[in-house]
């Protein structure tokens, strides 16, 4: 049962991170509302954190650095989500929609 030893291998976590990153990229392209794109961007950040944690677990000499970096990524992601939601509320006040197809004031 080689499948049951997966949690001890670095490659497993790298593949999980790659999957999360590509889900994020796919969602960024395919979503039509700003909130959908915000959700996808959270996946990209989570992929970065997963990679940092994996390298921290298996390769790094000092296993504190990766954890602290992931904590900082979490703080930045929380700040980013708060700012993005407030921008969305401001946009909704002006346009009455947050569909990306309708936000075309600069299109000329």
């Amino acid at each position: 049962m080689l499948l049951l030893n997966l949690y001890n291998c670095l490659s497993t976590y790298l593949v999980i991170g790659a999957a999360l990153f590509s889900f994020g990229v796919y969602g960024m392209v395919v979503r039509r509302t700003v909130i959908g794109m915000l959700i996808s961007s959270e996946f990209i950040l989570a992929a970065a954190s997963t990679n940092f944690m994996a390298f921290n677990r298996f390769l790094a000499p000092d296993p504190v650095v990766g954890q602290i970096f992931t904590l900082f990524i979490m703080a930045i992601a929380a700040a980013e989500a708060a700012i993005a939601i407030s921008i969305m509320i401001a946009v909704y006040r002006n346009f009455k929609t947050i569909d990306t197809d309708d936000l075309v004031d600069l299109q000329g």
């Binding site: 049962m1 080689l2 499948l3 049951l4 030893n5 997966l6 949690y7 001890n8 291998c9 670095l10 490659s11 298996f58 390769l59």
Partner: peptide, 20 residues
């Protein structure tokens, strides 16, 4: 491939349950 332990555990052991 970096693996911590290479021996694969059987299903009905503690390590196997952790894998599940």
């Amino acid at each position: 491939i970096v693996c911590q332990t290479t021996a694969a555990p059987a299903l009905f052991t503690a390590e196997g349950m952790v894998g599940v």
